[in-house]
């Protein structure tokens, strides 16, 4: 029994890091996919009428994709910190692994919701440029405001990862 507990405590740490990385990529990525999907519907609607608006639509529908990239970045940093991407193996406890898992959560959660809302916001501004293409500058700024909170999530995740001493 003691051996089992000892084995668990040494192996659970890396497993929690892997779980954290998976959540960061999985949840933030799902949000991005959903957000781009929402913006895509609007873009397809506008482009059916006017295919020349492709350039404008592409800029706007790409915006919700950044959260997925942030999730990927945090996942790579977490795996790298735990030495799971090769190089010298790092020894750490279950509690340190749990800390890394928690560090991955801000970008996972904020990334998901901000991507979905940014997708809705992009869809609305795609409708705007369908009538006023000259307003593309303003149309990019509006959904970009949602991005602020995804950046906050990314920042906090990175700070938390850096704060965990292995």
């Amino acid at each position: 029994m003691e051996t089992l507990i000892e084995t668990m405590s040494t192996q659970l740490g890396p497993m929690l890091v892997v779980l954290g990385a998976a959540l960061a990529v999985g949840i933030a990525g799902t949000g991005s996919a959903q957000g781009i999907g929402i913006a895509n519907e609007a873009a397809a609607g506008v482009m059916t009428e006017d295919p020349s608006k492709f350039g404008y639509c592409l800029v706007l529908l790409a915006l919700p994709g950044t959260q997925g990239i942030y999730g990927l970045l945090v996942a790579v940093l977490a795996l790298q910190k735990a030495g799971l991407l090769g190089g010298v193996a790092v020894a750490f406890t279950m509690w340190q692994g749990l800390g890394i898992l928690f560090a991955c959560l801000p970008i996972a959660i904020v990334g998901y919701y901000s991507a979905v809302w940014q997708g809705k916001s992009s869809a609305a501004t795609i409708l705007m440029i369908s009538k006023h293409p000259e307003q593309i500058g303003k149309a990019v700024i509006l959904p970009a405001m949602v991005e602020t909170y995804a950046v906050f999530g990314l920042l906090v995740s990175i700070l938390m990862l850096n704060g965990i001493k292995l």
Binding site: I38, E41, A44, G45, V46, A123, K131
Partner: peptide, 17 residues
């Protein structure tokens, strides 16, 4: 509501006519 995303966008573009 989500199902109308494409339709509303197309309608908005059609309004130019």
């Amino acid at each position: 509501q989500d199902a109308y995303g494409y339709a509303v966008a197309r309608i908005r573009a059609m309004e130019n006519r």
